[in-house]
């Protein structure tokens, strides 16, 4: 465990907890894409198939449980909680899961480290994670008002991506056998998707104005 990996995990954890806390406290999910949240729940469910079979560390197991629990809780709140679901921007959140899930599944069947169920699912989860933010970014573009918490949520997710890239660079130079092309390329694609959002986020922060994305 290096400092970049830890910082990446912590910003990832904070992003999910900020969102869950926001929904739980103000009983609103305005501006949050249910499509993205369902895709993340699917990402964690398919990636952590090894949770009870391969023990890495107590830290890993606990983090996996938190990510699974929090992502499914968010989906539950948005779909089932009678107050929260009323605030969901259903008409604006029109991205189809299918268009992201199917190509990722096909790619995972072709590009994986080993053709086993667990490895194909692991590759699928990486590809899907890379693009799962797209429905959220589309919703941010459409919604005129981006509240601070939604902005912070996407910012923390982007920070997590950036720290993971530093982690891979660090590990590449310190661990001789550490080469994971699939992880790196899908991770890089995912980070690039945030670059545009980051540009506007930093501008609004620098000029001390409310975040507003161009049409």
């Amino acid at each position: 465990m290096n400092i970049f990996r830890l910082a990446g995990d912590m910003t990832h954890l904070m992003s999910v907890l900020v969102l869950l806390l926001k929904i739980h406290t103000i009983k609103s999910c305005a501006g949050i894409s249910l499509k993205t949240q369902e895709l993340y729940a699917l990402v964690f469910a398919t990636r952590y198939l090894d949770i009870f079979t391969d023990f890495i560390s107590v830290y890993n197991t606990i983090m996996k449980l938190i990510f699974l629990g929090s992502s499914f809780s968010i989906v539950w709140y948005m779909r089932r909680h009678k107050l929260v679901r009323r605030s969901y921007d259903k008409e604006q959140d029109t991205f189809r899961h299918f268009f992201l899930v199917l190509p990722c599944l096909l790619l995972a069947l072709v590009m994986n480290e080993k053709f086993t169920f667990k490895e194909v699912m692991w590759a699928f989860s990486l590809y899907l994670e890379a693009v799962a933010i797209l429905p959220q970014l589309v919703l941010l573009q459409r919604t005129k008002n981006i509240d601070n918490l939604t902005g912070q949520y996407v910012f923390l997710l982007g920070a997590y991506r950036a720290f993971y890239i530093f982690n891979w660079i660090y590990r590449y130079f310190t661990e001789p056998h550490y080469v994971h092309w699939i992880t790196w390329i899908s991770g890089l694609v995912q980070t690039l998707l945030y670059a545009d959002f980051f540009y506007y986020y930093f501008n609004s922060w620098k000029n001390n104005v409310k975040l507003h994305l161009p049409a």
Partner: peptide, 10 residues
Amino acid sequence: SPGIIEHDEL
């Protein structure tokens, strides 16, 4: 062990 790919990241 050989043949098992270890995914130690989240």
